[in-house]
């Protein structure tokens, strides 16, 4: 016997969800919300506290080099804080309540932004860190012989750059595996919509 569309609708609507324990879910959500609030508060407090502590313990008045390196560290920390607030702490994505086209556009932009953070911003952060540490070491190693100082600076710089470069490449490979197919799939969906609208 042929199934017409209203039969299909009836068949579809006959399917019911299994009951779930809603109060446990709500309790879990409430706990997650308060944990997120605590994390936000922690990050907002810990950054100025760390910067303040560094300025308090380091003899920054004695040398312009230490002052510069402290400012660079503070700058890098604030940069990381801003990036964290953007990507992690800000969990409420308003595009989730928008229509599907706007949602797809927003998600593609956000996924691409994660690539930029890993591929570009992390290198800027590394450069700031290397400069700050080299300035501090330049002052701390003053009593040593020139060749020893050069050697330590070279090893320090190479080690940090090498490690960070390795970490960034690993991250980008992971993104290539996980994010790239998502971006391509979402772009494909958007393109299919546009092509359909054009050809109708």
């Amino acid at each position: 016997m042929e199934t017409n569309f209203s039969d299909i609708q009836q068949l579809w609507q006959s399917q019911k969800a299994q009951e779930m324990d809603l109060s446990t879910l709500i309790e879990g959500l409430r706990k997650t919300e308060s944990k997120q609030r605590r994390e936000q508060l922690f990050m907002l407090i810990i950054t100025p506290l760390t910067i303040g502590f560094l300025f308090w313990v380091m003899p920054w008045q004695e040398s312009a080099g230490i002052t510069t390196s402290l400012f660079l560290i503070a700058l890098a920390m604030i940069g990381v804080l801003i990036l964290s607030i953007r990507s992690k702490v800000k969990t409420l994505d308003i595009s989730e309540t928008s229509d599907n086209e706007l949602y797809l556009k927003t998600q593609i932009r956000k996924l691409k932004a994660r690539y930029i953070i890993a591929g570009k911003h992390m290198y800027v952060y590394t450069i700031l860190l290397v400069i700050a540490l080299n300035i501090s070491y330049f002052i701390l190693l003053e009593p040593l012989e020139s060749w020893v100082r050069i050697l330590i600076h070279t090893i320090l710089t190479a080690a940090i750059f090498g490690f960070m470069h390795w970490q960034i490449k690993r991250k980008l490979k992971k993104y290539d595996r996980e994010l790239k197919p998502m971006i391509e799939k979402m772009e494909g969906m958007l393109e299919a919509k546009r092509a359909g609208e054009r050809s109708k």
């Binding site: 989730e96 928008s98 599907n100 949602y103 998600q107 197919p181 799939k185």
Partner: peptide, 20 residues
């Protein structure tokens, strides 16, 4: 409409992730 928007957008991302 609001619920469906959330539901479909979540489903799209979920199914894209689950493909692998």
């Amino acid at each position: 409409t609001w619920i469906y928007r959330i539901a479909y957008n979540t489903a799209i991302t979920f199914s894209t992730k689950e493909k692998k």
